[in-house]
């Protein structure tokens, strides 16, 4: 039986003759949350963009359920990307954005409480943290099978991060989530699998202590 998963490998990317990604293997199954860690500039965002299909490397292989899809966002509508920066147009109302993303179930009563509370607000009037939270909730409310979340905890207060973690845990069923963030203290307990991007390669991290040995952090709390 074919496994439901998103896979990326054979990715080569370089900028100005400097190799960024060279030996990549990333796999995310349905119901799984994969944490992608790495230092600034190591290529995490580029890897997610290549998987989504808006960035082209020298070569890449992105597969969904064993089927080659590139650019994924065009050939496979079940993949969504939360970019590092906010992606909602400022003038759009939360209810309209929800209607677009959660097509078919776009009624207020079906939305998460955070969306209901800001139902008639324009996204431009939301604080940075509220907007980030709403963006993730919109992607979760969509029919996406795979979510690529690039720094979802950015701009969020600790209480909002805890709420978002709770939401991700609740909504993970039937979705595969790849999450990249520098807030490793939140990422480690949330994820089923941790992958460190280092020197252009993916390193599977079995034990958080390995992050110290691999030079990602100085010590584990």
């Amino acid at each position: 039986m074919k496994e439901n998963c998103l896979e990326a490998d054979g990715i080569l990317l370089s900028y100005d003759h400097r190799s960024i990604l060279s030996n990549i293997y990333l796999k995310c199954r349905h119901g799984e949350i994969v944490g992608l860690l790495g230092r600034n500039g190591c290529g995490k965002s580029s890897l997610l963009k290549i998987m989504f299909g808006v960035l082209r490397g020298e070569c890449q292989s992105v597969r969904v359920d064993g089927r080659y899809v590139y650019p994924a966002y065009r050939h496979y509508p079940g993949i969504k990307l939360l970019p590092q920066h906010s992606f909602l147009p400022e003038g759009l109302r939360v209810k309209d954005a929800y209607g677009l993303f959660a097509a078919g179930k776009g009624h207020e009563s079906g939305a998460a409480p955070e969306i209901q509370q800001r139902w008639n607000m324009a996204t431009g009037d939301l604080s940075g943290g509220e907007k980030r939270l709403i963006e993730v909730l919109l992607l979760l409310a969509s029919d996406a099978q795979y979510l690529l979340l690039d720094e979802p905890f950015t701009h969020l207060a600790p209480v909002q991060i805890e709420r978002l973690i709770q939401i991700l845990q609740t909504n993970r069923t039937g979705k595969g989530i790849i999450l990249s963030d520098h807030q490793y203290r939140y990422v480690l307990p949330l994820c089923d699998q941790i992958v460190l991007l280092r020197n252009g390669r993916t390193v599977a991290v079995k034990d958080p202590q390995e992050l110290v040995a691999l030079g990602y952090i100085n010590e584990l709390d």
Partner: peptide, 16 residues
């Protein structure tokens, strides 16, 4: 197309 929010449209399946 305010502020060129491309990812909004990509996530809705629009082509670049």
């Amino acid at each position: 197309l305010s502020a060129h929010q491309y990812y909004f449209y990509y996530n809705l399946g629009c082509s670049r």
